[in-house]
Amino acid sequence: MSDIHRHQHNGADLDDAAPGEERVNEREPAGGLQGYLIGYGLAILLTIASFAAAQSDLIYGPAVISALVVLAIAQMGVHLVFFLHLTTGPDNTNNVIALTFGVFIVVLVVLGSIWIIMNLNHNMMPMHGLQPPAG
């Protein structure tokens, strides 16, 4: 029995980490209060960068969307690491695999829709002039 208890900590299960569990990285730089402070700071910086990218002329107009997408993905990563305590550790494997599958579906839905509808719009173009007058 003592062997069992050695691998448990206050009744916590050390084989698997629940998503967002504080215990996972509380002794690492990305965990605990320090982790939340770092994450908050990084998120603020990335938010300011997003607003600056959209509102100033620093970035070539057509490239603004790329900058915004990159900054948004970076900030989501900050949230996942510092607020949701996702790690590459073996106790987090299940959480990361589920997340990966979710991201896969999201990308499929969003990019697939844009792709298909852009194609449709392209092929339907002559319709624009054939619409009956409103009223």
Partner: peptide, 18 residues
């Protein structure tokens, strides 16, 4: 909050800059 990141970036900021 993660969903809001996508909304403020891709809806508001992009919509206001395009």
């Amino acid at each position: 909050d993660i969903v809001w990141i996508a909304i403020f970036s891709l809806v508001y900021l992009l919509g206001a800059s395009v």
